[in-house]
């Protein structure tokens, strides 16, 4: 548990800036969820067997978790590693790079969990959750967070500057969001795009979260969870190796 003090350090910084951080983290997904849900919802009576607002709400949980973990691992992680040299200070203490990378990944996932919880809470206020199965979304949100935090750490490990992260957003995150069933069902997309989406983690996240939100058990739960776990393990190992190469050369 040597990583815990590093996680606590990030928590302490976050607590100081929590006000603006929560508003910033929540406002964007909420505006999309309510704007699209109510606006388009007037034109679309139902989608995938539920109200469009409910459809978008479950997509928003996944998308805001992904965004929050990605931002934290890339922009904030890069600040601590490269700009403020916070990691250098930690490496002079009895911490190893393993402790730091684990703590940063856990922290980004924790922060994204908070973001997911907030969206879920608001969705439940709007009556968009049914039964109690949706509580299972919480551990799944944490997995989604770990997955995108690990992927983000790979980008942090190879980034020369902040500008680099735009590539990841425009070439990976945004296209993935559009083909993974966040805003509309993916099954109307061309077969090749569907195959591509099936290889990416976000569609598996959506297929776990959406049924749970309306009180149903997901189909192929094991497959979806395994894909998320696989991405976490592989991305984490790649990020760890690249960071080792960058910082301990």
């Amino acid at each position: 548990m040597r990583w815990l003090p590093v996680w606590q350090r990030n928590l302490l910084v976050w607590r100081k800036l929590a006000g603006t951080s929560i508003i910033g983290n929540l406002a964007d997904p909420l505006i999309y969820m309510l704007g699209l849900g109510y606006g388009l919802g007037k034109l679309i009576p139902e989608m995938g067997g539920m109200s469009y607002l409910a459809f978008v709400a479950s997509g928003t949980v996944c998308y805001s978790t992904m965004n929050s973990a990605t931002f934290e691992a890339m922009y904030s992680g890069f600040s601590r590693m490269h700009v403020q040299k916070t990691w250098d200070a930690m490496l002079n203490a009895p911490l190893s790079l393993d402790d730091i990378v684990l703590a940063e990944t856990m922290w980004a996932a924790s922060k994204s969990l908070l973001s997911g919880i907030c969206i879920l809470f608001i969705a439940s206020l709007f009556g968009l959750t049914q039964g109690w199965l949706w509580l299972w979304i919480l551990p799944i949100v944490f997995l989604i967070g770990l997955c995108f935090a690990s992927l983000g750490m790979i980008m942090t490990a190879i980034a020369p500057s902040y500008d680099f992260f735009m590539y990841w957003f425009t070439l990976a995150i945004t296209p993935m969001m559009l083909i993974s069933g966040v805003w509309f069902p993916a099954d109307q997309l061309p077969a090749i795009v569907q195959t591509l989406a099936a290889c990416l983690p976000l569609s598996h996240a959506v297929q776990l979260v959406r049924p749970l939100m309306t009180g149903q058990l997901p189909v192929q739960t094991l497959l979806h969870v395994s894909v998320l776990l696989g991405y976490i393990v592989v991305a984490y190992l790649i990020a760890h190796t690249l960071l080792q190469r960058r910082l301990l050369k």
Partner: peptide, 20 residues
Amino acid sequence: NLDPDFTAGENLLVYGRYFG
């Protein structure tokens, strides 16, 4: 490489935790 978000005291507290 002090932590710019912290006070002087918090810098010492957080760093001490790294030593367990």
